[in-house]
Design a binder for these strands. Structure first.
Lengths: 203, 203, 203, 203
DNA sequence: CATGAATGAGCATTCATTCAT
DNA sequence: CATGAATGAATGCTCATTCAT
């Protein structure tokens, strides 16, 4: 039931929807071509504006990069937080987080690729802010892994790097025709949880 | 007289010295700033040349990118092949390969980062060639994992993605003060080989 | 009820308050940075407006320049006229005019610098109007010098150029910690009035 | 006898003559329109170049301003030094300097106007350098005035400001149809040297 | 009176590339 | 092999100005 029949507001807030359009276009182009290979004119043209007009909405190209980064972080962090909240078993929580991470990485590719691919050192003036956002997001996985009951000889630090690295690298190989994010997450977690080494046959 | 007198020398002792210098400079700058943020003038200045002079050695900036990529691939592939040849046990071979991969990724950072970070779609005309090199290199890990004896329910495809992704993601977190590439490889392999899930206490 | 009840008030007490604020801001910025280096946004921001809103008060940036120029001219001309009216001796009148000229040049710097520094050829469409204002103001000094009793061999034209040029050039060197405008005017007039050349000793 | 018949050098030095052309064009345009109102495209077009090509010869627009300033200073300083060297009487030396100053101000208008009109605070990064050049040049007039034999009550500081200000202000009123620089200098110096005040008739 | 949003032209500057010398 | 000089297109950004609301 999407619309009520009475009293639709005469003027929709209309607020800032060009800013959203601009950010969507920027996110898409940054992903497709990279930040440096995307020009302000490209972004403007994508929304039917002139390049100078962008500056009414954003102070600089780097500010756009940061805005895309922040929006990507927000989306993936919200999804992970929501997914984790539904589970209580530590391994189930980690798997839910991994699936949510992957799901948003793929569904909101435009915004999240910039998160994955932009190194703070490349981001100029907004580099430090990006570094903070990155750290803040990663702390979720750190906590989830700390909550696991693990054999004492396992190094949680490397477990995290293994899983988190593999999840992020998915941007290189993931394609929509293949397995779902949930399946990928389950396979990754299964591979980690189980004994892989088959005892060598004695001879 | 360094060479025997018969047969034309296969390679002159230090032919095209400047080309090597240029490539080193390009590799370093591409890593430090990214491809698009590096100008031909930057590269030329780094070797004390004028930018126009580069074109005696390379046809274009993209050709330089490809040359860096190829050199990086050659170095890492040679190291992995040599390391694998020394081992016979499949898990030991995979660990040796992982350690060699990491070691070259770090020791020859300038050349290999370009391999890790350049997406084929960003590379313009040399994109397809880069895609081929990437696939060729990855096939080594595919084979090493095929040779493992694994429990039947384990999906080798995802094991490879897990390990290879994590290894490549190391560029984000690896720093020279921390563990050695060999230690990292051992920790990753241990984490994978062993049983992580502790059986839940019955109640 | 600030005005008497009969007769329409000639000017409302503080009509178009914002116009005055805008003009003050423009004058200050034109002086500090020059006309071309000042943007409408700078002026608007200085009074807490958006740049588009200026156009309610002024037709264009050049109109603002002219308005500043006219206001500067008015202030300096009024001051000179008032000062001259108090004296009757021609040299005293010239000195009073010079002191008043300098005093307003300094006290109303923002408005008068634009007078001193804007060449008509730089002022675009309002150039001719500026030329007229300049000539009108200068005529005062022409008249004051015509009224002096001078030795016949003195060229009044060059006396005026000497004094008027030196007074205007004061914008380059005058600073508030130094002598007062009155002192400067007295020194200039003294230097002119007196015999400077000391007869060379005969030998 | 402008050319010798034998052995004209086949290749003239040809060095840097585009740089000179560019500087001439910049000087002219800076004078005609002011620094800020002149664009790099204007300068380039004036010598039949594209605007980007200027940057082979100059690092920035401000560097061009400085180069014009320096060249103007050099020309006027050389002329003044040469003129002063020919005279020995202090008043004659001052008059020769004033005439030379005016002569170069007019003959090399394009270069010297920038000297006269550019305030250090407007020159951005090259402001301090301009301030130094200005001070260096002015010291000549300071010395010439120190060498005069003057009545003790005369303030040499204001004499210098009077003369130097009036000379520089000449840019506002000087036109080629009028008196020569030498005549102007003579009139200015005469006006200064002589007794202007006619003793008031006793009554 | 003023804003919010945009225009369109223009800005200084940088770029990869070319080519005669 | 390399330079000196330039090209021509593009870049991020700023500008005065407009106008519906």
């Amino acid at each position: 039931m999407p619309a009520s029949s009475t009293a639709t507001p005469i003027r929709a807030p209309r607020q800032d929807n060009r800013r959203v359009q601009l950010l969507d276009a920027a996110a898409r182009l940054f992903r497709e071509r990279g930040f440096h290979a995307t020009s302000m004119r490209d972004i403007a043209k994508a929304v039917g504006m002139l390049s100078g007009s962008i500056y009414y909405h954003f102070d600089s190209k780097e500010e756009m990069l940061l805005a895309v980064y922040e929006e990507g972080e927000r989306r993936v962090a919200d999804a992970v937080d929501a997914a984790v909240a539904l589970e209580s078993d530590p391994w189930a929580r980690l798997e839910a987080a991994s699936a949510a991470h992957l799901r948003v990485l793929i569904a909101h590719r435009d915004y999240t690729q910039v998160m994955i691919r932009t190194l703070p050192q490349e981001a100029g003036a907004v580099g430090p802010r990006i570094r903070d956002l990155r750290r803040d997001y990663e702390s979720r996985f750190r906590r989830l892994i700390d909550d696991l009951a693990l054999p004492p000889e396992i190094d949680r630090h490397y477990l995290r790097l293994l899983l988190f690295g593999a999840l992020n690298w998915s941007q290189v190989w993931f394609h929509s025709g293949g397995d779902s994010p949930e399946t990928v997450a389950r396979r990754f977690l299964d591979t980690l949880r189980r004994q892989l080494e088959v005892p060598a046959p004695r001879h």
